[in-house]
Design a protein around this nucleic acid. Structure first.
Length: 1094
RNA sequence: GCUCGAGUGGUGGAAUUGGUAGACACGUUGGACUUAAAAUCCAAUGGCCAGCAACGGCCGUGCGGGUUCAAGUCCCGCCUCGAGUACCA
């Protein structure tokens, strides 16, 4: 019986599906284990072999855990809202829902072929109303919450309202907008309902605010910070500009500290944690308020107002954030970002034109330019002065584009002796650089703060710093903050880089907000009326008036009486009490891509629930993800937002844990091996009586990769050969790497009566026979090119200037495992029509053309190879379906693991797959021969048991360490050994099938059933390792001399140190090695090694 | 610039606490079977040197030092590549 993998795999895939073998139960006596993959966006291109890598790893682990007696939850779903479907819809008018469903069907088909043990009964799709109902629901929960810093958690907005009613907002310690105005309880109660709502928006965890956003005109939408890479959009690479818009935002900044602290207790890759830490960007320091000389605020003039000091900042003070308040006596100027709101106010008339020109110039530079140009120092003096909080000295105020609006307060106190950028700025504009550092080290640190900035926090005490003199960094920081607080001009502060996340997108294909507007104020729809379904639209583009695509919907208004979506025509945007019928416009934005993916892992626990996002029972049973596998590119997106929502829902008492994934592994990318053909590119000049012009012509003449390499090598070595004269070297090198150089050599060798006689002799002497052959082949190429060229130019006179090679991607399916191009297939391939009559210069110099295909002559066309990302445009995509058809899913699964460590990026090479495929065939043959099953109940031999138990031990250790590649080789060794031992014992082969089943489940299941088992192998327990089978009586000792192994010696393991030494010393090879010398020292480590020094 | 990570045969990669470097595969070469090809099986395969052969010798984990009986592994200094991040006050 042959190993018919196609039949076997189809059979068991059907069996598993029909029997719901992998359906997880929400109640069980077994311990739970939750293995999760990052769910995919179902793109139209389908899967390539790189995509399933993580799924295979997680599937192996899930299956392994089932064998180990766990109740395993291993679900899969689709992140099915997103841009590509929408853009396709814009182009074709196809409803995104339709294309999404088609893509999902294709994904499912591909996934099913690989034999995953997913519990498909729990599938989720973020674009399903039954799912996004709960995404909308969570949004409403966020809207109804505020962050209380005193209790350090999110609370219902009602607790805030009751505080306002009794105490006003001055005692409230909340995370809120920067510009909240202080009010008393009496004032609060006197506010109108509308005013109260506006204030509450400044506290809610999701809030509507006029914010400066990243607007991408090409995509017609705003983007979150994590969707921008190097100043352009992550998708498409379009420019991004800053723009003020009314947008929903998520107050993720409230959770900055907890998101940072939480990293300590989760087992995620260190680099990924580091990325999140940097993104959160915590810095500890102080805010300091500098009075601007000659500026008075309204509040200051009106002493009757009771105003919190914090609200004064933008009026007559410049507020800065600094991590080094201790250096405050080193301040010699201040710098504002050009966009700072005070710039206009404080600039003196004399400086006005200069400042305006500078502000104008910076605003024209894109974010990207500004980032790229770090070296140039630029800035302008405003003419204004601030007052030092302690010395009361005037401090000049400058503006400079090295200060960013987006970080801190957009203003810095410049301490040139302590910060390199301040130093450079001061030096450039001749601003004094007072030094405040005194070295405390021996020898003293040279010129700290004088020649360049001294940015260290150790090795100094302060001088010239009034009450801080003699203090070190730590002491001074504490003291100065105390003093600043005393005079009301500063306080200690922790600053985070993490910004609130913009949550609105001007898109169609996303979750609609459950929000309608009354008088421009947002109102939540009651949760009982969810989901608010996406309306149908004619066009998926923004409207002519610039509204988001939902502005095209005709049925998009909320009827608050009947609680349903109704036609827009009934709606009154700003209703007059008397005339409106309780019908209001609905929100036109949709939610961003990360909304649905921020909580899906919780939905899997109870996917079908229609009354809750998941039941408390299910949530408390599964709790969190034990193992999460996915790419590291989601570090600052999905993985941060998901942690944020998890913590919020935890605060609400809706979830049992505040981190959703205990362990995370980033799988590496599988790269493609692109193939190249080398086409000749010819430059020639043509001249008739009137003109002379240089042309470039691609010639359908393709040269084998090996030849190209040889030719290039030869040209290189000749043009660098010092024995040859400068003239000939130059002639060879003309356009180094070109055929013409060697043509020159060829002509030169033919024609011996020339002026460089000396070179002729040298050439003859340095060229080997092989070199001459290359030169001749090269000449042949040249002749063909010339012929082609003359033909296409109707015999016009021309001069060939140079002939080069141009690399063209060729579809990898046309190339075999030895890099041979299938010339016949290539000619017929629709992509390569222009080469249907091409000539192929094979690696042996033969030419294969349509009229004389000379494949038989032993030559082959070898393609060039290069490792690149897999992509359609590079024709290096390998489809898992093809692999499954040709080799089977088990082979695919094992090979993907065998390629290398899971976390590492590695190139796919289809050639290597025969190795694991042969292994599976060998495994098959261990159980089955031509007469069927050959396994018997024969007693296993000692060797059999040893091989098995060695494998159990190693396989278990490796799986636990996620070292899947080494497990595969362990299996290979085991099967090689058992084959050599001719093992047919059931006691060995039955457990072996279980060992292998996580990796190659189909063949394992088939063999398991052939062995007579009725239940699925998935229910079998993992074999138990028994040390006793590995106990040895002898050890092959490596005998080394000065640390280098020279020979081996079998000795009993129970032999004592002295005895070993005696036996080894007496050995004839030892004497031979020593060659009469007396050893200085003999190291014997029993059971390990013997080392003789001497 | 900063922060991580990595450099091992022709290739992918092994080597868990310092203890036989190159497991397991691919590829290549040779052989068997075959009319032939594919498939399969067997053998060789880090480099250099020596030899008819057998038995060998020397060098080798990016480079230079160090610790140790013993270093791919530990320490110091450098080089190269990759990833992330970047005027963060």
């Amino acid at each position: 019986m042959k190993y018919n993998f196609n039949e076997i795999e189809a059979k068991w895939q059907k069996f598993w599906a029909e029997n719901q073998t992998f359906k997880a139960d929400n109640t069980s006596d077994k311990p739970k284990y939750y293995v999760l993959d990052m769910f995919p966006y179902p793109s139209g291109a389908g899967l390539h072999v790189g995509h399933p890598l993580g799924y295979i790893a997680s599937d192996i682990y899930a299956r392994y855990k089932r064998h180990k007696g766990f109740n395993v939850l291993h679900p899969m779903g689709y992140d099915s809202f997103g841009l590509p479907a929408e853009q396709y819809a814009i182009q074709t008018g196809q409803h995104p829902d339709k294309t999404t469903k088609e893509n999902i069907a294709r994904y499912r088909e591909q996934l099913d072929k690989i034999g995953f043990s997913f519990d498909w009964s729990r599938e989720v799709r973020t674009s399903n109303p039954e799912y996004y109902k709960w995404t909308q629901w969570i949004f409403i929960q966020l809207f109804n919450s505020w962050y209380n810093k005193d209790t350090d958690k999110a609370e219902n907005i009602s607790t805030l309202v009751s505080k306002f009613k009794t105490e006003g907002n001055t005692t409230v310690n909340a995370v809120c907008d920067d510009d909240v105005v202080a009010f008393s309880a009496i004032e609060w109660n006197a506010f109108s309902e509308e005013e109260q709502q506006k204030i509450l928006l400044q506290y809610r965890l999701t809030y509507l605010a006029e914010t400066e956003v990243n607007w991408c005109p090409q995509l017609g939408t705003v983007l979150a910070n994590d969707e921008i890479v190097n100043g352009v959009s992550e998708r498409g690479g379009y420019p991004v500009v800053r723009k003020k818009m009314k947008q929903w935002s998520m107050r993720i900044s409230a959770y900055a500290e907890r998101l940072l602290q939480g990293l300590e207790k989760i087992d995620w890759p260190e680099p990924l944690k580091e990325i999140q830490r940097n993104w959160i960007g915590k810095s500890v320091g102080a805010t300091v308020r500098f009075k601007v000389q000659g500026l008075k605020s309204k509040e200051e003039n009106d002493s009757t107002l009771n105003v919190k000091p914090e609200t004064l900042n933008s009026k007559n003070f410049i507020e800065v954030f600094t991590t080094r308040p201790d250096t405050i006596f080193g301040v010699s100027f201040m710098t504002l970002a050009p966009e700072h709101e005070l710039v206009e106010k404080i600039t003196t008339p004399e400086q006005k034109s200069e400042v305006e020109a500078y502000v104008e110039a910076t605003s024209k530079r894109s974010e990207r330019e500004r980032m790229a140009d770090v070296k140039t120092i630029s800035g302008v003096f405003t003419g204004a002065y601030a007052e030092h909080p302690f010395t009361k000295e005037p401090i000049p105020i400058w503006i400079g584009d090295y200060v960013l609006t987006g970080y801190g307060t957009g203003a810095v106190m410049a301490v040139p002796c302590g910060d390199q950028r301040d130093f450079d700025f001061a030096k450039h504009f001749n601003i004094p650089i007072p030094n405040i550092f005194e070295s405390t080290t021996t020898p003293p640190l040279e010129g700290l703060g004088e020649d360049s900035a001294f940015a260290e926090k150790e090795g100094f005490v302060l001088k010239n710093s009034d009450f801080l003199n003699g203090l070190n960094y730590k002491q001074a920081t504490k003291k100065v903050i105390d003093e600043l607080e005393k005079i009301g001009q500063g306080n200690g502060k922790i600053n985070y880089r993490l910004r609130d996340a913009v949550f609105s997108r001007q898109r169609y294909w996303g979750e609609p907000f459950p929000v309608y507007y009354v008088n421009g104020l947002p109102q939540m729809i009651d949760t009982e009326h969810l989901p608010i379904r996406l309306p149908e639209v004619e066009k998926y583009l923004p409207t002519e008036t610039g509204e988001p695509p939902l502005g095209n919907a005709t049925e998009w208004a909320w009827d608050t009486v009947n609680n349903k979506i109704v036609s827009n025509s009934l709606c009154h945007a700003e209703p007059v009490e008397a005339s409106h019928k309780g019908i209001y416009p609905l929100e036109l934005n949709t939610m961003p891509g990360w909304a649905g993916s921020s909580w899906y892992f919780n939905r899997y626990m109870d996917a079908g629930n229609t009354s809750e996002f998941a039941s408390q029972k299910a949530l408390n049973y599964w709790k969190d993800v034990d193992l999460y596998i996915g790419g590291s590119e989601h570090a600052t997106g999905h993985l941060l937002y998901a942690r944020f929502w998890q913590k919020f829902l935890f605060d609400q008492g809706l979830l049992p844990v505040d981190e959703f994934a205990k362990k995370l592994i980033n799988q590496g990318m599988i790269l493609g091996e692109s193939a190249f053909i080398h086409r000749v590119l010819c430059k020639y000049s043509q001249h008739n009586k009137l003109e002379r012009k240089v042309n470039e012509a691609p010639i359908p003449c393709l040269v084998s990769s090996n030849l190209v390499k040889e030719i290039n090598k030869l040209i290189n070595s000749l043009s660098n050969d010092n024995k040859l004269s400068q003239e000939i070297k130059q002639n060879i090198a003309v356009g180094s790497g070109y055929v013409s150089g060697l043509v020159y050599v060829h002509d030169y060798l033919k024609n011996d009566d020339n002026q460089f006689e000396n070179d002729f002799t040298i050439l003859k002497s340095i060229l080997s026979e092989d070199d001459i052959e290359i030169i001749n082949i090269n000449y042949k190429i040249y002749e063909r090119v010339k012929e082609r060229l003359l033909k296409s130019n109707q015999g016009l006179a021309l001069i060939i200037n140079s002939i080069g090679f141009y690399n063209i991607h060729v579809d990898v399916s046309l190339v075999d495992i030895s890099n041979n191009l299938d010339i016949e297939k290539f000619r017929k391939h629709p992509l390569y029509e222009e080469y249907s009559d091409a000539e192929f210069v094979l690696d042996n110099g033969e030419i294969s053309s349509v009229s004389s295909p000379s494949g038989r002559l032993g030559g082959a066309y070898i393609v060039g190879r290069e490792v690149e990302k897999m992509s359609k445009s590079k024709y290096n995509v390998v489809n898992p379906d093809d692999i499954c058809t040709d080799y089977g899913a088990d082979t695919l699964r094992m090979y993907e693991m065998f390629l290398g460590p899971l976390e590492q990026a590695k190139p796919w090479n289809t050639a290597g797959i025969t190795g694991v495929h042969n292994f599976l065939k060998k495994l098959w043959k261990l159980y089955v021969d031509d007469n069927g099953l050959k396994v018997t109940d024969a007693e296993p031999s000692k060797d059999n048991l040893k091989s098995l138990h060695k494998t159990i031990k190693k396989a278990e250790e490796d799986i636990e360490n996620f070292s899947f590649n080494t497990t595969v080789s362990t299996f290979m060794i085991c099967v090689n050994e058992l084959t050599a031992q001719k093992c047919i014992s059931r006691a060995i082969l039955e457990p072996l099938a279980v060992l292998i089943s996580p990796y190659a489940p189909h063949i394992a299941e088939e063999l398991w059933h052939q062995l007579g088992n009725k239940e699925s192998i998935a229910t079998a327990l993992f074999p138990v390792f028994d040390e006793k089978h590995l106990v040895e009586s002898t050890k092959t000792y490596p005998i080394s001399f000065n640390g280098k192994m020279r020979f081996k010696l079998d000795l009993p393991l129970d032999m004592s140190k002295d005895e070993i030494e005696k036996v080894v010393m007496a050995h004839e090879k030892t004497q031979q090695q020593l060659d009469g010398r007396t050893p200085k020292k003999i190291i014997v480590v029993p059971g390990k090694i013997v080392n003789i020094v001497g």
